[in-house]
Design a protein around this nucleic acid. Structure first.
Length: 465
RNA sequence: GGUGGUAUAGCCAAGCGGUAAGGCGCAGGUCUGCAAAACCUUUAUCCUCGGUUCAAUUCCGAGUACCACCUCCA
């Protein structure tokens, strides 16, 4: 079984064949760290983390690199507004990025390179492009000579002449051609800068990814990913830079995730409808946000609002409760029942289908539906008078595997405070004495403490609401 | 002007040439002291109009609506 993925470059779903067998070199464009990440930043983080997890589950050794843009116009502006230095602002929001994405279940990249730690590398990259005639200096800036690169537009499938129609040409441009883009920006008075053959300045936006991807992953990489909006011009420019320099294909597969809308409107500053992960996870379990994102295919648009998130929370709960239902039953399970094999086969079939769905361009929406099927089967199985430990274990282990691939966690076992435990005992006594008024009152009391009790044939159990 | 996306039940969302997965919600039922959890049942003229086909939600054409990229943006 092989993984298939939709390649923006070819506009086709292709069988994934890595450059080096068993290994995946993957680069995901990371954020500019001038603020907390919003849910639009969270989508690629979650989606491509899931891609990575699945490839790993499929046995690939994945080298995952994701950058931080820690110097650029937005950062300089933010620093000025905050009255702080650029590095301090960047550092703070990098920390925040790690906090937020970790909460969302994203594994850290193998390397998180930063622009400011790779200036020399970037300068060397630009110099080579200048030497090869693909770049030129102009008034302290360095520009990429876009028309010189034959394949320009191959990712976004635009012809270079049509691009020109839409391109805006700002006043006072130092470019030879409107399509040229900046590789090195001359520093303005007081701006953070580094020295270079062209004077004090800093890297342009696109060059960092070309340089850093090459440094950590080599001239040619397997998967390059990011948000849909990055396809043009960012990724297009990366291709131009990298391939002009190395004369090798930069990335084999280009993956782009779709947008997020808020209440069917584009998230934008002017509308004031930015939703920061930092804020939302104070109110909602971060896993719910992850689950919500994964419940839609990664290339399709996602509409966001609180109601939809609450609905996702209810869905996730069903899955987690099903898992708990199975776990709870283990204490009273036996070694043998009649239909073990039949159930084990069913469970295995679900797992197989889950992987097939993931193999098919990471169809997490369908993969999640398999999880619901597994839950249904688990609950149906628990209807039987006797359950086998082997079957319960199989349910649990497959649940855990699938949850792991999706980056979700099944509920952790927790201990209750003694006084809560005492309340449960007291209610138990009350029930035995058929003092239901007292029993119900205790149950309500616990509910106010966010603890939901369930009386089952196998005894009382509780969970957090 | 160029490029692309989306339109499927109250809501979310897969699918895709043979007559619609899954979830949330709603309603009814079973179980329960009552609940909870769970199970069962119910819930869709697949945007419109043409065309191709034995057969189209699925392909083609023309529309309509919404969205995005072509400028910083996930």
């Amino acid at each position: 079984m092989s993984v298939k993925l939709y390649n923006t470059l070819t506009r086709k779903k292709e069988t994934f064949i890595p450059i080096e067998e068993g290994k995946v070199k993957m680069y995901v464009c990371g954020p500019t760290v001038y603020n907390y990440i919003h849910i639009g930043n969270a989508r690629p983080a979650i989606v491509f983390d899931t891609v990575r997890r699945h490839l790993q589950y499929r046995g690939y050794d994945v080298m995952y690199v994701s950058n931080f843009t820690d110097v650029d116009d937005k950062l300089i502006r933010a620093a000025n507004e905050l009255g702080e230095e650029v590095p301090a602002v960047a550092e703070r929001f990098i920390e925040a990025y790690f906090e937020d994405t970790e909460a969302l279940g994203c594994q850290r990249a193998d390397v998180h390179p930063r622009v400011t730690e790779n200036i020399e590398l970037i300068v060397a990259f630009i110099s080579e492009l200048v030497n090869k005639g693909f770049a030129y200096e102009s008034g302290g800036d360095v520009y990429y000579r876009t028309r010189k690169f034959d394949g320009y537009g191959k990712l976004s499938h635009q012809s270079i002449d049509e691009l020109k129609v839409g391109a805006r040409i700002g006043a006072g441009e130092k470019k030879d051609d409107a399509l040229d883009f900046v590789l090195w920006k001359a520093a303005k008075e007081g701006e953070i800068s580094w020295s270079s053959p062209w004077g004090e300045g800093r890297p342009g936006w696109h060059i960092e990814c070309s340089a850093m991807a090459r440094k950590y992953l080599g001239d040619s990489i397997d998967i390059h990913a990011g948000g849909q909006d990055l396809a043009f011009p960012h990724h297009e420019n990366e291709i131009a830079q990298s391939e002009a320099l190395t004369e090798k294909p930069f990335a084999r597969y280009w993956l782009h995730n779709g947008y997020i809308n808020i209440d069917n409107e584009k998230m934008s500053k002017s509308l004031g409808n930015f939703v920061l992960v930092h804020d939302i996870i104070k109110e909602v379990d971060p896993q719910v946000l992850r689950f919500f994102m994964l419940s839609v295919h990664y290339r399709n648009p996602v509409n966001y609002n609180r109601e939809l998130l609450d609905s996702a929370a209810a869905s996730l709960d069903r899955l987690k409760i099903a898992y708990d239902n199975v776990k709870h039953r283990k204490a009273s399970s036996t070694d043998l029942t009649e239909n073990n094999d039949q159930w084990l086969e069913k469970i295995e079939a679900h797992h197989t289908r889950f992987l097939q769905e993931m193999d098919d361009d990471f169809n997490t929406a369908n993969a999640i539906s398999v999880l619901f099927d597994l839950s249904k089967d688990a609950n149906v199985y628990l209807l039987e008078d006797h359950t086998a430990t082997a079957v319960l274990d199989a349910f649990l282990s497959k649940f855990e595997d699938m949850f792991f691939v999706l980056g979700l966690q099944v509920k952790q076992e927790e201990l209750l405070d003694e006084d809560i435990d005492a309340l449960i005992q007291e209610r138990n006594e009350a029930r035995k004495n058929r003092d239901f008024a007292r029993a119900d009152s205790i149950r309500d009391q616990l509910k106010d403490m966010n603890i939901i009790l369930e009386d089952t044939a196998q005894g009382i159990r509780w969970r957090r609401g």
